[in-house]
Design a protein around this nucleic acid. Structure first.
Lengths: 214, 214
DNA sequence: CCGATGGATAGCCGAACGGATGATTCGGAT
DNA sequence: ATCCGAATCATCCGTTCGGCTATCCATCGG
């Protein structure tokens, strides 16, 4: 029945700064006859133009777009457009901070690039139906909340710690007393289960609480 | 003339833990009529078996293969095989430590995944002829030698620093006096241009001198 | 044979750190 | 109305760090 309305193909747009990955996703997706790739973008700006012009159903978004705005920001802007697309994050990273900021930005799903192609297809189809799709590893991480979460202030201090700031430096920078800094540090140490700043920095980077970028 | 010996196609094997990337490279490479993909592997072990069995001309190797041995180690093992393939590193990272260890392991080239497909093809063809091919960004980094290199001992100490060890701990662990540790630390600080252990750890991880793994 | 380099060692000292303990304020959840 | 977490501040105290200066020894390449 209704052979004149067979399967409305899902229109997909790709946003990734790696030509190799774009080609890979395109090759995989186009082999599915209910999915078509309508466009590609490699940076934030062209992504917005692409989506505004083509109105894809689903945008596959890399979180790491090289220099400039990251995928989370781009996601937020795309979702603010009229007739916004569903955004499915397809990235390498799976830290809580990454996931949370993407979800906050309005992403409908979160997949890792090492996922089997079948999972990718399922995720695209689910997303196009308005479902929320999380990779098992991602979902698990959100459930067990891997570590006790740090407060904003604590993360801020960790970031400055990594630049070699002393307690006094931190106190000045944050307009509080050294006592306060030490108090924060004590909390950080106990939450991260370490007892020195050096170890705290290493652990924070390992758990991707802060980024090893200066 | 010689239509019976047209162009001996270059046999390429892919080693990458991301199906998406493998599909991308495969799609791009197979569209070139002088290149064929003869096999794929997603981890160290299957990579060795694949190469031993198929004897490809060129192996495209990701440095980051997830858990287990990294691409550099796999490269070294492949190069130790009889009739070793040329190995072309195709990865996301471009730190000096990564590059050097890959070259040391016997890689013939180093490309970044954000390279245009044309560069990738040129690199594969060059590598198959035995040339050494470095991405411009990579070559530049090797020239200006971004940072002074640390000695083995210094790297060892950095690794332990990241676990929160005190000078005394380090002294015991390495069977030297605390004075020696402090001496090493002073050298490390000056080479990394920092003045605290925390900053040294952050910088070392950022420059991939040590890994944020425990 | 000799300088350069990496490694190990030493002492000194002021500054910084980490642990422990306790207190106040504020805002959100119950 | 109550309780709790987050953030702020304080004091004390023993330990650790980092900077400085200097020596000694092996190895390695010229």
């Amino acid at each position: 029945m209704t052979s004149d309305a067979p399967a409305p193909a899902i229109r997909v747009a790709l946003v990734d700064d790696h030509p190799v990955v774009r080609a890979g996703v395109r090759a995989l997706v186009e082999a599915q006859d209910d999915l078509i790739v309508v466009g590609e973008a490699s940076d934030a700006h062209s992504a917005e133009q692409l989506v505004a012009g083509l109105h894809p159903d689903v945008v596959l978004m890399d979180l790491n777009l090289g220099p400039g705005p990251g995928g989370a920001e781009v996601t937020a802007r795309l979702r603010a457009l009229p007739e916004p697309p569903y955004v499915l994050i397809l990235t390498t990273y799976d830290t809580e901070a990454d996931i949370m900021s993407a979800i906050d930005a309005g992403a409908s799903g979160y997949l890792l690039k090492d996922a089997p192609p079948e999972d990718l297809f399922r995720a695209i189809r689910g997303t196009a139906r308005g479902e929320t799709v999380l990779a098992p590893a991602v979902a698990a991480r959100l459930v067990r909340r891997s570590g006790p979460m740090l407060t904003e202030r604590e993360v801020e201090i960790l970031g400055l710690l990594a630049t070699g700031k002393s307690n006094r430096d931190l106190a000045k920078k944050l307009y509080v007393s050294e006592a306060t800094i030490k108090s924060h540090l004590a909390h950080i140490y106990s939450k991260l289960d370490v007892d020195t700043r050096a170890a705290a920095v290493a652990r924070a980077i390992e758990q991707r609480i802060i980024r090893p970028v200066s």
